[in-house]
Structures are given as structure tokens and as C-alpha cells.
């Protein structure tokens, strides 16, 4: 799984590429924490357009990102979610806590 970060004013966009499973999540969580700490954004946008697979490990990653952003007084949004990952997020009812576009 690859992570590409782009900061624009107070919006930090993270593009995730590859398969988001438990194996990938272990490193991904640390990388997101680091870049959020560095950029201190108001808005965190998680771009899922290149996520080719996601399981419940991704739910915890998204929820953690949302919690980190709330601590900073901001929020997280997930965008461009492909069908398979969308089904997982929807089954978990995660849209109650995080904005999914």
C-alpha cells in the first residue's frame, strides 16, 4: 500500500494506493499519524480511488484518522470509494461517524 500526501492550505489530501488489509494497515496508520502531526490540517481527505481491496482493517484506519482530526478541531472525509470498499464501509455503518462522498 502506497500513500501520497498533498497539502493545500489547511486541507491535507492522502491518496491511498493498493490493498488495505491488516498487513498494510500496520504501517499505514503510522504514516498517517506522522503526516497529520506534521501538517496539522483542518480537513483531512482520504482519497480511496486507487484502493483495490479493503477489509475491516480499513474501518479502524478511517476511524482513527477521524479521531485524530477531531482532536485537532477538524474532520476527515473519505472520497472516491470503489464498490468493494464501499460495501465494507456501508456494512460497518461507518457513515454515521465519518463523511463519505
Amino acid at each position: 500500500m502506497e500513500l501520497k500526501a498533498k497539502a493545500d492550505h489547511r486541507t491535507l489530501t492522502l491518496q491511498l494506493r493498493g490493498e488495505l488489509d491488516h498487513h498494510a494497515a500496520k504501517r499505514l496508520v503510522r504514516e498517517i499519524d506522522l503526516v497529520v502531526e506534521r501538517e496539522v490540517p483542518q480537513q483531512l481527505v482520504l482519497d480511496f480511488s486507487a484502493v483495490s481491496f479493503m477489509d475491516s482493517s480499513g474501518i479502524a484506519v478511517v476511524m482513527r484518522a477521524q479521531r485524530r482530526m477531531q482532536e485537532l478541531g477538524g474532520s476527515a472525509t473519505v472520497i472516491e470509494v470503489p464498490p468493494q470498499a464501499r460495501r465494507v464501509l456501508h456494512t460497518a455503518g461507518i457513515d454515521r461517524w465519518v463523511k463519505i462522498k
Binding site: S56, I59, A60, R64, T91, A92
Partner: peptide
């Protein structure tokens, strides 16, 4: 803990 969300069985059951 916070690395997991407790949704694995729910996902298996519904998929």
C-alpha cells in the same frame, strides 16, 4: 483494542 473495529464476523455473515 483500537486497531480493530469488531466488524469481521458481521461482514462475513452479510457477504
Amino acid at each position: 483494542g483500537e486497531e480493530r473495529s469488531g466488524m469481521g464476523f458481521t461482514i462475513m455473515e452479510s457477504f
